[in-house]
Write a protein that binds this DNA or RNA. Sequence first.
DNA 1: GGCCTTCTCCACCTTTCGATGGATGCGGCG
DNA 2: CGCCGCATCCATCGAAAGGTGGAGAAGGCC
Lengths: 211, 211
Amino acid sequence: MTSVPVRLLLADDHPVVRAGLRAVLEGEPDFEVVAEAPTAERAVELAAELDVDVVLMDLQFGSGMGGSQATAVITARPGAPRVLVLTTYDTDVDILAAIEAGATGYLLKDTPPDELADAVRTAAAGKSALAPEIAQRLMDRVRRPAVMLSLREIEVLQLVAEGLSNQQISERLFLSQATVKSHLVHIYAKLGVDSRTAAVATATASGLIRR
Amino acid sequence: MTSVPVRLLLADDHPVVRAGLRAVLEGEPDFEVVAEAPTAERAVELAAELDVDVVLMDLQFGSGMGGSQATAVITARPGAPRVLVLTTYDTDVDILAAIEAGATGYLLKDTPPDELADAVRTAAAGKSALAPEIAQRLMDRVRRPAVMLSLREIEVLQLVAEGLSNQQISERLFLSQATVKSHLVHIYAKLGVDSRTAAVATATASGLIRR
DNA sequence: GGCCTTCTCCACCTTTCGATGGATGCGGCG
DNA sequence: CGCCGCATCCATCGAAAGGTGGAGAAGGCC
């Protein structure tokens, strides 16, 4: 169908992973890797400057902007490329944040090369490409909306789990402490607990947050 | 010096990472990648069958044997290859387990290709190759000989991690709240934190308590 | 247009937690 | 024996967290 190759941008902070993606994807005749970005910020710039069809985006970057933020910025622009998230983690926070941000697909890094190539073609065609594990998680989530925390609530809870105080969380998320407390009150109600440590314990047990 | 190339075995469950390592390392004229292993078990087999100088070993495998176990098995044999651990994570448990198991070096996956190549040569020569971050961690660890919490302190911290309040902990352990607080103060001092959630976060990260 | 949810923010008040600065008894070690 | 670390206990005070009861803006849905 398409005689012109699919133009790709690789965004990952690990040089080894970028080289691996390039090696795997350039083996396909209908792909062309036009650039690599070692940071999320650089990915945003390159996606704007270059004519790119699909961005392969990692979620974890060492510092600075995160992958889902970058995804949101990139997909906001009209005529934006598709963003295919490719990461190691598969927690609810990551998945929901990425999809919310406008990702076309979500793959795990242990995906075999041929499936990866298929997913890129699927994404280039504008269809969503989800790894089976991810699809399963979303199904579970829909089937049992028992612990339905909003995205923002999970975000707050994740920071609580990392040991931050309400003050620190408010600074990190550019909120007031009052708002953080509000979110926490809602979280406690939904989880049926009455303290931050208990919330972290139950949320960890149900796989809502990482670590 | 060495006219024969360094013979490498790549052990990682991510095809993309294996491809990346192969791409990066085969660019060096003095390296030869002789095999790839997608599981730790396969890495052990291949290390025994083939004549290998250095094994590049991931720590996280999806299922089955872990990377540090495989490292222990491989290095136990006389005339064994050097094992260079290459992983994303840098928690104390991982690092210590790998070094304990006989790893010659420990690198993080965001290492630049040239440093990676240097580290492989260093490992091939039998010298230890540690990423600066890792070296720093080990120094910290030596400087402050293990974060040794007393049994009682770990007991208290474990209950904190399960979400119990000081009151509940005191009842569970037949203590007064004052005593629980005392233990917590000591725990905070040893861990270098100043709140219960932060204590749980760091203790979990260093494997002091189970989750 | 209403209705609902989410996210944001505010004020007031109570409880819990953490910080400080003690004290006692016990057991190991030089 | 004295010293030290551990575990236990205590009181007090300020700071942080939690409880209650709001409110307004944005977006999806009927």
